[in-house]
Each structure stands twice: as structure tokens, then as C-alpha cells.
Design a protein around this nucleic acid. Structure first.
Lengths: 255, 255
DNA sequence: TAGTGGTCTAGACCACTGC
DNA sequence: CAGTGGTCTAGACCACTAA
């Protein structure tokens, strides 16, 4: 095998990354299995280890492989999770068992698990602005970490105004059937309008560790705001999802 | 100045990237202006040029700077464009002057411009599937390239079934007021349901050149499908947008 | 011709893993 | 202890730009 090129216009490390990427996609290197060592690849392709390392850096950034220090480079088993932002609300409304996240993963044959940490924190400046709260005032924060087959795939922190949520089941870890949105509805602040703003950025300090990511990889940074019927923003939810693990779907009626 | 660290846990090139990123955000290096040369930075921070180069590679990947070979590294003027997928349909419906794209850019004080290339092509396999067309059959393709202040910011190729679009104004470069969707409505196939699937990936061969991107940067790959009232998919639109130039907004009613 | 960034090699040291 | 990837330096050559 070995389409041993390495001349021409494209830099060697990019060509090499391409060759290895193709090999992975052909199934030549199997998901969950370690790749040959960088020294071996360097010998095989007739380049320096530095060049191999640079090529692997590309594949890592793409989420195709990951490294276990001291052990080797492993091909990532890549179950891309499809997140239907609109549909998930409907599942929630329907009282979907343990939430939309679990339903999404179940459809892929994955097991879902999640953490929650509830606390009162000083509202980040922009969140305070959206919630129309004094800058620096306290809000209820629900910080969740979600796992698929015990691999972390999402961080989500939900901010809610204290005058609505304090002392309610929303301030409990378990928010009951239908989750936070159903409790908001019980309190007369059921979300009527939802909006999500999507950007892509490098993981922040904590996030890279919490999501098991490299600094060169990227997350979707999604900010959702929920307005009740009166037009008041009753929730701001900041999410971080590794881009190589997710696909986002939005649907709406024309007109 | 010069918080000249470079010890400790984080690799030097990452620390250096952080320092330079901060300097840019502080306005120490100005948008549109060249940075000091890599040799100068290497001397200033006491590292090798290789390390500076690696740091700059990070900033390039983030879209913060770009390189003009032989000239230098320039700080990118970064007007992030906000794309409201739902609102843009409404603008279109309202017959918004020259389209939603121009309206979006006008709000940022940017000038919009775009190319169109209309042709009949063999449908890509997955597109044929969505349009419920014979694999390999011909479809109408409208390939657009959009510019903001003459900087390319988006590629979009729209695929439409020939039995609907052939011989109509949709096959013309200028589709008239309201654009393709209004013409589809005239033909009794007005879109009723829209869906967009968002992923993030490296630019493909042609895209990197057409969008003036590095291979290490990323694009949003957005596939929109439009269904008419009968539930038939009447358009598939594949878009590529550099992630560092865009912010995506989706809005919907709860329930 | 001088200056700029892109890339490559050779060689080295480190931290971490697993035997 | 050997093997793995992470990173750094020194030195080099290239293509391209601008004077």
C-alpha cells in the first residue's frame, strides 16, 4: 500500500495527514485501536518525526484521533450526535422520560448520564443584561455535564432569576417530569419564545479538561434564551459542545 | 509591557499565542496593520522563530490574523456577521430590497456583493436522495459566492429539481423580487417547512481558496432543505461559512 | 536584494505509561 | 526501563513581496 507521495505543492505534513485520514476512513486503522507510533510512521513515509507529529496535530484538531500520553495515539470512535433543537423541546413537553438528551442518545444506541450542580452565583455581566437584573446580582445557576457512554459531550449552564426560581423545585437537583421548563410553566413563566445563538471557539480553560479536548479543537458555543409569554427572559443557557461530536438541527415553518 | 512569562505548565507557543491574542484584543496591534515579524517577536520573547511560528498558527486558525506571503502577518479586521436564519426568510417574504444577505450586512455598515453561476449538473448522491430524484440525474444548480466589503464570506449552492425549475426564472441569474422562494411560490411549490443542519469541518479544496481561508480554519457547513406544502423537498442548499466570520441565530416558538 | 512567513530535518529533553 | 507523544532549538532552504 502506502501511496507514498511527498513532493509537490502541498506541504508534507498536510499530505501525510491526508493519507492517514484516508487510511482511517478506509478502516485501515480501527476505532479504539492505537495507530503506529510516530517514529514508525516517520520511517514508513520517509519524513522526520516532527513532520509526522505536525500531521497528527491536524487529525487531532479534527477530532479523528486522540492521544493518551505515554501510551499512543488512538483512533476515535466517532458517534456524531444529532441535536434537534426544536424537536427536543417537544420531547420535553411530552414529558419524555428522562429528558431530550437521553432520547437523542438512545436513538444512537448510546447511554446517557449527566451531572448537575445547583448554586446561586453572581450573574455574568451579559447574562445579567439579558435577564434584566442588576449587574453583579445573584442568579440561580444549574451547571450540567452530559456524557455519552461515559464520554463527556456537553457542558450546559442555565441561569434563572431568583425571584422566579428561588425556593422552587427548579433549585433542586431533580426538577421533576418535564424539567425546568415545565416548572417554569407551573409558575406562570412557561417559555413561549426560544432563541439560540451559535458560535464556534476554542474551549475555555475549564472546558478543555471537562470535555477531554485539545486546545486546537473547537466547541459550539450555544446561548439559548427563553422568553415567557410576557416577553420576559426567564432563562439563559450557555452550552459548550465539541464540534466533532455534534450536528445541530433547526427546523421552522416558512413565512 | 511584555508580561514575559514562558515557564511553567503550558507550552511556550500556547502561552505566547495567549500573550499576543491579549495584545490584539487590547488594541496594541491594530486591525489591518501588520504585526512585528516573527524574527522580532522571537527576539522580544526570547524563543526560537519556530515557536513564534507555532503560536501564530494558533491565531491564524482562530481567524485573528492572516498572512500575506512575503509581506507579513496582518491583524484581521473582524466584523462578525450575525445570520438570523428565521428572520431572513421573513425579509425575503417582505420583498426585502436585494435580499436578506444585503440587509444583514447593511446593518453592520458593510457592503454586500454576490456572484451567481447557474447550471445543470449531475446531482450529488445525497442531494438526489433528498430531492427524491434518480441518482446521477440532472438538477438545476445555483452556485453563489457572497462578499462583505469585497471579502468572501460565504459559498452557497442551491439544488432544485428540473421538473419544477427548468425554463423558469429560477434558471435565470436574476430571479426577481423575493428571489428563488418567491418564484417557487409562484409555481405552486412555495416552501412551507425549512430545516438546517449545521456541522463544522475544514474547508474543502476549492473552498479554502474561494473563501481566502487557511486549511486550519473551519467552516460552518449548513445544509438547508425546503419542503413545499405537499411535503416534497423542493430545494437543497449547501452553504459554507468561515466560522470566525459568522454567528448563527435560530428562533422558534415553544411547544 | 533584503525581508517575510512556510516548512523541513536533526537532535534533544521532558512527562507519562506499562512492563 | 523502554516506548510514546509534546515540545523546543538551531539551522536551513524555499517562494513571495517590495524597494
Amino acid at each position: 500500500m502506502a501511496t507514498v507521495t511527498l513532493e509537490s505543492p502541498e506541504s508534507r505534513f498536510r499530505q501525510l495527514a491526508g493519507l492517514i485520514r484516508d487510511a482511517i476512513n478506509r478502516g485501515e486503522y480501527r476505532p479504539g485501536q492505537p495507530m503506529p507510533s510516530e517514529d514508525d510512521l516517520a520511517a514508513e513515509y520517509g519524513v522526520s518525526r516532527r513532520t509526522v507529529n505536525q500531521a497528527m496535530r491536524i487529525l487531532r484538531a479534527e477530532g479523528l484521533v486522540y492521544v493518551q500520553r505515554g501510551r499512543g495515539t488512538i483512533v476515535r470512535p466517532v458517534p456524531v450526535i444529532r441535536r434537534d433543537a426544536v424537536g427536543r423541546q417537544q420531547i420535553r413537553e411530552a414529558g419524555g422520560a428522562r429528558g431530550a438528551f437521553q432520547a437523542e442518545l438512545a436513538a444512537l444506541g448510546l447511554t446517557a448520564r449527566s451531572d448537575v450542580q445547583v448554586s446561586e452565583v453572581q450573574a455574568p455581566e451579559d447574562v445579567a443584561g439579558l435577564l434584566a437584573i442588576e449587574p453583579g446580582a445573584a442568579v440561580l445557576a444549574r451547571a450540567r455535564r452530559m456524557f455519552a457512554n461515559d464520554v463527556p459531550v456537553m457542558l450546559a449552564t442555565s441561569y434563572l432569576p431568583l425571584d422566579i426560581a428561588a425556593g422552587t423545585q427548579i433549585a433542586q437537583e431533580d426538577t421533576g417530569p418535564g424539567g425546568v421548563y415545565s416548572r417554569l410553566a407551573d409558575l406562570g413563566h412557561g417559555p413561549a419564545e426560544l432563541a439560540e445563538t451559535v458560535t464556534v471557539r476554542p474551549p475555555r480553560d475549564g472546558e478543555a479538561a471537562a470535555l477531554g479536548m485539545d486546545a486546537e479543537q473547537r466547541v459550539y458555543s450555544i446561548r439559548r434564551t427563553a422568553e415567557d409569554a410576557a416577553g420576559r427572559v426567564v432563562e439563559v443557557n450557555d452550552m459548550a459542545l465539541p464540534v466533532h461530536q455534534w450536528e445541530l438541527v433547526y427546523r421552522w415553518a416558512a413565512g
